[in-house]
Amino acid sequence: MKLLISLLLFLNIAAATSAQTLSTVNYGSISGAVGNSQGSVSIDYFHLWKPGASKKIEIGFGARFTSYFGNSQYYSSAPASLANDVTNTDSILLVSPQVNALNLAVNLGYRLFPKIGLGFNIDALGFTLGSTKDGTYLNGTQGGSTSAKPTSFNVLLVGNNDRGTLNSEFYARYFFTEKFALKVAYQYVFTEYTTDTKIQQTPEANDRFRNKASLFSLGITKQL
């Protein structure tokens, strides 16, 4: 959250006072990511400023579309009041979760060498679409059938207070040319489903369940 506020402050100052003195660059990327019986496809666009004389730092914002798909994935209680204590978490098992999210995102990068760049980006705010899925609610030895749909609204907050589907990447880029780069990334994707009823009742009523996916991503970046 501090990073997000810092970035927004920087962008505000940059846009208001230094637009003509800062060089900018626009990147578009398409990536495919895989993990344990799950994966994602993402398309992003970032507008980055390059402050300083060396112009090695790239900082800015953009948008990212993420389509996540999984095979038999567990989702744990999402609200921070439950997720912060594992003894308070129940779970739902979804056979074929699939969500599509469009989020505003921020990016911080550094051009380590002329051909190699490193960076981090994270979704901050957006919305998610996806169909209702049948699943199984699990509470210790007890369980039952349920159905759930993707949580519609996404927002990055502090710790487990996040809501919805949010993607983030630690990435490295290798520039074949100044225009094209191969992007390799560790992708961390939160996806969230809301059950039709508040199926969890103890220690408090809850209908939100979250999956955290660690994925390996490979993609192509083009300077636009």
Partner: peptide, 20 residues
């Protein structure tokens, strides 16, 4: 580009093997 797509699909297949 085709090689990259093939690589991604190969990794995907390897990561989605049969469960125990």
């Amino acid at each position: 580009m085709k090689k990259i797509i093939f690589g991604v699909l190969t990794v995907l297949v390897l990561c989605c093997g049969p469960e125990d």
